[in-house]
Each structure stands twice: as C-alpha cells, then as structure tokens.
Design a protein around this nucleic acid. Structure first.
Lengths: 186, 186
DNA sequence: AACCGAATTTGACTTAAGTCAAAAAAACAT
DNA sequence: ATGTTTTTTTGACTTAAGTCAAATTCGGTT
C-alpha cells in the first residue's frame, strides 16, 4: 500500500473498490530542483502527496514572487493540497529539491467524488483540515510581528524549515529578506 | 422552504429525505445587539446562516479583542461557517445588531454526515469554498498595505462594511483604529 | 435641548520594518 | 584550487504604522 492511501485512510473508511479506484488513478513523478509541477494559468490541478522532497507554491505580484506555502514529507499546508475548483491556477508550484510525489489529477478526483460517495467524506475532512491551517496562518499574519511569525513557523516544523532558503522563508512570512536576516542574527 | 436549505442546495442535490432531516434539525433564534451566540471555550459549535443582522467572531489576545470575521446576509466568510471539529472554540461569536439566524448544532450536523452520505458532498464544497476565502484573506494580509487591505475589504461588500464600526474593522484588518481613521480621511 | 458615554479624529512622537547599495559568505562549476 | 554566480549579511537612511493623550463628534436618553 502506498503513502497516499495511508494518508487518506486517516480521514475515514475506504472500501476495497474505492481503494482499487484510487490506486488506478494514482500517478508518481520524480522531478529535479527548479522544475515546475504547475504554472500560473494552467488548469491542471490535482490532489497530491509528497513522498520525498520539498516544493513551494508562489504567486507573482508586481514582479515579485510571493510564496504561499511549502510542502514536504511531514504534513504542512500543501503537502497534500486539493485544488478545489477547475479554474486556471493563480499559483505556481515548483520543486526546491529533487522530489517524488504521487498525485491524482483534478478530473480523476472529480470522478472519484462522483462515483464513490464515501470519497466525499474524505474530501470534506481534508478541506476542513486545510481550513484550520489557513485560519491559523491568517491569524498569525494578522496579529504577530515579523519576529513572532518566524518563531511560529520555526516551531511548526524545524527540520524542514532549515532546508528552505532565507529568501523563500521571508517571502512566505511577508517580510523583506534583510529583515529576516536581522531577526536570525539574534 | 427556508433560506438555509436554499443555500445548501447551491452546493449539490438534496434528496427529499435529507431535506426533511435538515428541516427537523434546523433551529431559529433572534438575539439582541451585544448578546453572545458562542463564548470562547464552549464546545457548542454549529453550522449557521444569518437571515437578517450582523455578527462578528473575535479572539482575545493579550487582553485585546481581535476580530476574525464578520457575518451578514450576503455571503461573506462566516455568514455560513461550519465549525469543523468538536473542540472547545477559541473564538467568541457576538451579535452586532439584532440578528435572526438559523442553525444546526454540531452534533446534529455530524448525525447528518453519518446518516446521509450525500450530505458530505455539500460539506466538502462548503469547506472548499471557505478554504478559498481564507486563502484570499491570508494573501491580503501577507502582501497588502493597511490601506490596500481596507480597500479590498470595502470592495468585497460595501453596504455591509458601512454597518460595522471603525474600531471593529481596524481589528479585523490587523491595524490600529487611529490608522484606519487616517486612511478614511483620505 | 442638554447631557452622558462611546466612538472617532487629531497631534506629537516612537518604533518596526522597508529600501537601496555594497560587502561578505556560500554554493557551484571549470 | 580558482573564479563565477547566488545567497546572505551589514550599513545608512526612509517610511508605514503604532502608541499615548487629548479633543471632538456622534448617538441615544431623559
């Protein structure tokens, strides 16, 4: 059994038929650092899980890349992200390390939701969990100073954060990289 | 048919049995300005829709009330908010005007999810929609200045925003009320 | 109309964080 | 190793927004 199914089973019961249907639609890719999984404007969104590696999602605003989330092996926002609507993506997803990920395409996922009602329970719980994470992120941006936000992020997943460059973290926190450098230097 | 069902039907098909089950569990309350629907620490969360009125959700941080969202008749984050987990709430929900709301309690909602699988499709789509709203809110807090955030909020629902006091809006935007007053004075 | 309390505005000053530029350090390639 | 590019750090200065305190305006009551 793959990591993808193991993860989905945390949310609820999966029948043998559904398990088989998921397995048939699951694809695995290995990509190099710097490659893109998705570029802004493409409609190819999907549900995915990172087996190994590190990715970022970013948005281009006034010529600048604004990081929205990072994804790596241990669960963080984006390590498994259902892209909910069949709309052109406003975000880019790029590999920051050599990464292995398994995914189900958006159209396959919708087929699963249509054909297997129990899949909607899984989907509901995933979306609810992501709501919870996003609520925390918004609250952090609303009330914390740059330094507090950095500490909050560090506390959430120290090992993974150390694999991300300073510039990328600063962009995620919504601060200048010089500011983050000064925060780090005590 | 009530506003609640009309809203839920936007997300997907609801069978006659499910409609009946929802109706049986729907309660209606009318409360005065200043009253509380939910206080921090209580587990009584629910799915609700505002028929008429205005509410706010806030969180107390370092002795200050931090507004998290507002709810009113036309859809905004919180006008219909599934509170996803049976955990003590960290937020307070208070009425800012005389308000009529219809709601289903958390335990009744879970019964619906368990007994009517089609309800999970509705729940999934609601949670996905809330994810989308929260993503936008986080992005606004991450990249916009105080003034831009205010304009973004105003654009989202001008009539309703004018019913909310300056102090409450400032708290929601994560800025001092003096700053918002200066922004408003051009 | 006159009063009260709450909400908002204004002023003076402080502080957190941004910008721009250059230097230093680290990562990478030949 | 040596040079090249990218990333991080440091310095000087600017700007957005916060704080505190006082004044003003607004809403509701008698």
């Amino acid at each position: 059994m793959n990591a993808f199914l193991t993860h989905l089973k945390k949310y609820g019961y999966i029948s043998d038929e559904l398990e088989e249907a998921i397995n048939q639609r699951t694809k695995r890719v290995v990509r190099q650092k710097g490659d893109y999984f998705l570029k802004q404007g493409q409609v190819v969104s999907s549900l995915f899980l990172i087996e190994q590696g590190l990715i970022r999602a970013f948005y281009v605003h006034q010529g600048r890349e604004i990081n929205l989330w990072f994804g790596f092996e241990n669960y963080v926002l984006g390590s498994i992200l259902p892209v909910y609507f069949n709309e052109p993506s406003f975000e880019n997803i790029q590999f920051l390390e050599e990464t292995t990920l398994v995914y189900i395409s958006s159209s396959d996922l919708n087929e699963l939701y249509d054909s297997y009602r129990e899949m909607n329970l899984i989907g509901r719980k995933m979306a609810e969990e992501i709501c919870k994470i996003l609520e925390k992120r918004a609250l952090s941006l609303q009330i914390e100073s740059a330094e507090e936000r950095y500490k909050t992020l560090l506390a959430s997943d120290p090992e993974a954060i150390h694999r991300i460059s300073l510039g990328n973290i600063a962009s995620y926190l919504g601060i200048a990289q010089e500011t983050l450098s000064r925060i780090r230097g005590k």
